[in-house]
């Protein structure tokens, strides 16, 4: 007595879709000739496949998107190129700026100021100005000194040290643009004692 085997769901589905291997298809077909259970299941598979095919053909094609890669753009060649270019540019700019700065600005410049109406003492561009206020009143207490620009905007505030030759003050002016400035000397009580004109050259 011979036994006949049912096809699996997968085999039956591939059979109705015409995609089962020919050898398997022949055997399954022989079985289908005598097995109503498999006939019924094959019919169901066929209805499902045909219905799905028809409905899916009406649908717009959906393409699966890759998983969101928020930092994927970092690996883009264009980004790497742009980053490299920017870095090189910044390095070159820094070198040029540093060299030009050290060439244009003196480390320090010493000047002596006298308060005279309408008079502005010239000073070279430097990182620091060592100023001696010749006509500052003598005294033991330090004076408050303020540097303002031509519009009266405060640039620096500090204190000066009195000596026999006058009041000495060191002011960092590396960031000061060429132009007119005023140095104001205040007494301990806050009263303005003198104002000195200063012109920083180019």
């Amino acid at each position: 007595m011979k036994y006949s085997r049912h096809g699996t769901s997968e085999q039956l589905e591939l059979y109705v879709l015409g995609r089962l291997d020919p050898g398997d298809s022949d055997k399954l077909e022989e079985h289908l000739l005598v097995c109503e259970t498999c006939q019924k299941q094959a019919d169901q598979m066929r209805h499902f496949a045909l219905g799905m095919r028809e409905a899916l053909l009406e649908e717009p094609v959906y393409q699966e998107k890759p998983a969101t890669d928020w930092f994927g753009w970092l690996r883009q060649p264009s980004f790497a190129f742009a980053t490299g270019f920017t870095l090189v540019f910044l390095i070159v700019l820094g070198v040029v700026y540093t060299r030009s700065g050290s060439r244009d600005l003196l480390p320090a410049a010493a000047i002596q100021l006298t308060a005279m109406r309408g008079e502005k003492t010239g000073a070279p561009r430097a990182k620091q100005l060592d100023i001696t206020l010749l006509d500052a009143p003598s005294g033991r207490d330090p004076y408050k000194v303020e540097l303002v620009d031509a519009t009266g905007h405060n640039m620096w505030t500090g204190s000066g040290q009195t000596s026999e030759k006058g009041t000495r003050v060191s002011i960092p002016v590396a960031s000061a643009d060429p132009g007119d400035y005023f140095l104001r000397l205040y007494g301990q009580d806050g009263t303005l004692i003198h104002e000195y004109g200063l012109r920083i050259g180019k």
Binding site: M1, K2, Y3, S4, R5, H6, G7, T8, S9, E10, H31, V34, C35, T37, C38, K40, Q41, D43, Q44, H47, F48
Partner: peptide
């Protein structure tokens, strides 16, 4: 009957023996 899917449970039907030929 045409909608009575035998494998609706999701399990693949094994190649069971059919009735005697």
């Amino acid at each position: 009957d045409e909608f009575d899917f035998a494998d609706s449970s999701g399990e693949e039907e094994s190649a069971a023996e059919a009735p005697l030929s």
